[in-house]
Design a protein around this nucleic acid. Structure first.
Length: 155
DNA sequence: GCCAACGTTGGC
DNA sequence: GCCAACGTTGGC
């Protein structure tokens, strides 16, 4: 089975690639969208590579690479009444939300901006550019490679 | 801060 | 099961 490629969004004010670099590894808490959850729960496998996207910032874009380090398990922040991601409809006996852990791989010297991605014809079918609100999404291997080249400044 | 896009909820 | 109202995301 070929290695999977994904893109995951985070607001850097909440959790940035710099935070992941410092921490080394982190649980991807707080996804409260079914499609994004299903992707994490059903499709993401240990070792898969992830584009780490910074959203709601200036400029938005891909900041680096992470790797799935633990496959899906219940998002415990949903059980914690005092946590901002608390969801009363989820509980440990019937967890509604799942997440993966990711580990730091690489931070790009410069963010590959959303604007730059939009300018490339070969990326026009990217889920990112067509379903702007989906926070965990698949990326084609060739799209992934192209963005990594841009991020490393090697193209 | 605005607001378009769009996912979710809940009344019926 | 439809769909209007509502809430959230996320670019600008």
């Amino acid at each position: 089975m070929a290695k999977g490629h994904w893109l995951m969004k985070s607001e850097p004010k909440v959790y940035s690639i710099e935070d992941l670099e410092r921490d080394g590894e982190a649980p991807w808490t707080g996804v409260r969208n079914y499609e994004a959850r299903n992707t994490m729960r059903d499709e993401m496998r240990k070792g898969d590579l992830v584009l780490f996207y910074h959203s709601s910032t200036t400029p938005p874009g891909v900041a680096g690479i992470a790797r799935v380090s633990r496959e899906a398990y219940p998002d415990f922040t949903a059980f914690d009444r005092d946590h901002p991601y608390f969801d009363p409809k989820s509980n440990p006996d019937a967890p509604r939300w799942h997440m993966v852990d990711v580990e730091f791989v690489e931070r790009f010297p410069a963010v590959v901006t959303l604007q730059a991605l939009r300018e490339l014809e070969e990326l026009e079918d990217m889920v990112l550019l067509n379903r702007m609100r989906l926070s965990v999404q698949p990326v084609r291997p060739e799209e992934f490679e192209r963005i990594v080249e841009l991020g490393r400044g090697t193209s």
